[in-house]
C-alpha cells in the first residue's frame, strides 16, 4: 500500500494506530513526538515495555515496530508539532492526530486544512473517546465540531486518567478511518455504557477554517494558546 501516514503523538492513541497502520501495509509512517516513556503510560501505550521507561517514545516505538518484523518504513521526527515546524508532516498522504492537548489538536486541524490533507482526530479520557475523520478537500472539519480551544487548564490523561482499552479502540478506529477515508464521520465510545455511536457531521457554513468565508488562512502561533477563562 503506497501510503504515507503522519502520526502526531505516539502515546495511548498513536501506538495502536501506528501498529494497525503498519500491519495494514502502509508504506511509510512519519512519527512525531517529544515525550519519554513513563511507567504510568504502560497500561495503554501498547508498544512500550518496562525496559522502555525513561526512553524516548519515538525510539521505543521504532524499536517495537521493527521487532514485529513489519516492512513499513519508519520516519521518526523528534519534537512536538508547533506552528514553526508544520513542515514536519510534509510528504504524508494522511495525518493521524493522536495528541493529548487542545493546542496541538487545533494546530493539526488547521495545518491539514491549509495543506489540503485529510486528518483523523482522536481523543480519549477516563471512559470516553472520539475519532473524527476530516477530508483534505474541505469540511466538515474539527473547527466545525469544536470552534476554538477551550479556556482554562485542561484535564489530561495524566490527571484525569484513562482506561487503557478505550485508547486501544479509538486508536484502532483512527487507523480504520484513515484507511477507509470515511470523512465526516464522528465515532464516540462511552466505555461505561458499552456504547459506540456513529454520527455524520455536517459542515458548518460559518466555520472559521472551512466555511464559506474562512478567517483562518495561515498558521498564526498566537491562535494556539488557550484563551483565559472568563471572570464570573
Amino acid at each position: 500500500m503506497g501510503l504515507t501516514a503522519a502520526v502526531i503523538g505516539v502515546g495511548g492513541l498513536g501506538a495502536p494506530a501506528s501498529l494497525a497502520l503498519a500491519r495494514a501495509g502502509v508504506e511509510r509512517l512519519i512519527l512525531i513526538d517529544d515525550d519519554v516513556v513513563d511507567r504510568s503510560n504502560l497500561h495503554r501505550q501498547i508498544l512500550f515495555r518496562d525496559a522502555d521507561v525513561g526512553r524516548s517514545k519515538l525510539d521505543a516505538t521504532v524499536d517495537s515496530l521493527r521487532r514485529a518484523g513489519l516492512k513499513t518504513h519508519l520516519d521518526p521526527r523528534p519534537g512536538r508539532l508547533t506552528p514553526a515546524n508544520a513542515a514536519v508532516i510534509d510528504g504524508c498522504d494522511v495525518i493521524l492526530e493522536c495528541s493529548d492537548n487542545y493546542a496541538t489538536k487545533f494546530l493539526a486541524a488547521d495545518v491539514a486544512r491549509l495543506r489540503g490533507l485529510p486528518i483523523v482526530h482522536g481523543s480519549a479520557i477516563r471512559f470516553i473517546g472520539t475519532a473524527f475523520a476530516v477530508s483534505g478537500a474541505g469540511g466538515p472539519c474539527y473547527r466545525c465540531l469544536f470552534e476554538d480551544i477551550p479556556p482554562g487548564a485542561q484535564a489530561g490523561c495524566d490527571v484525569a486518567g484513562v482506561v487503557g482499552p478505550i485508547c486501544g479502540v479509538i486508536g484502532a478506529l483512527q487507523a480504520h478511518l484513515a484507511l477507509t477515508a470515511a470523512y465526516g464521520t464522528l465515532i464516540s465510545l462511552d466505555g461505561l455504557r458499552d456504547e459506540l455511536r456513529v454520527r455524520s457531521i455536517p459542515a458548518r457554513a460559518g466555520c472559521a477554517l472551512c466555511g464559506s468565508s474562512p478567517t483562518i488562512d495561515a498558521i498564526d502561533a498566537a491562535r494556539y494558546h488557550p484563551v483565559e477563562a472568563e471572570e464570573n
Partner: peptide, 27 residues
C-alpha cells in the same frame, strides 16, 4: 446538532434524548 436546527430554540419532546458533547483532549 442543535446548531443545524434552531439552536437553543430547538424544540424538544417528552422521551427525547439530549446529549452534551464537549471537546476532549486526552490521547
Amino acid at each position: 446538532d442543535i446548531r443545524f436546527l434552531d439552536g437553543l430554540r430547538t424544540a424538544v419532546k417528552d422521551g427525547e434524548q439530549i446529549s452534551i458533547v464537549p471537546a476532549i483532549a486526552g490521547g
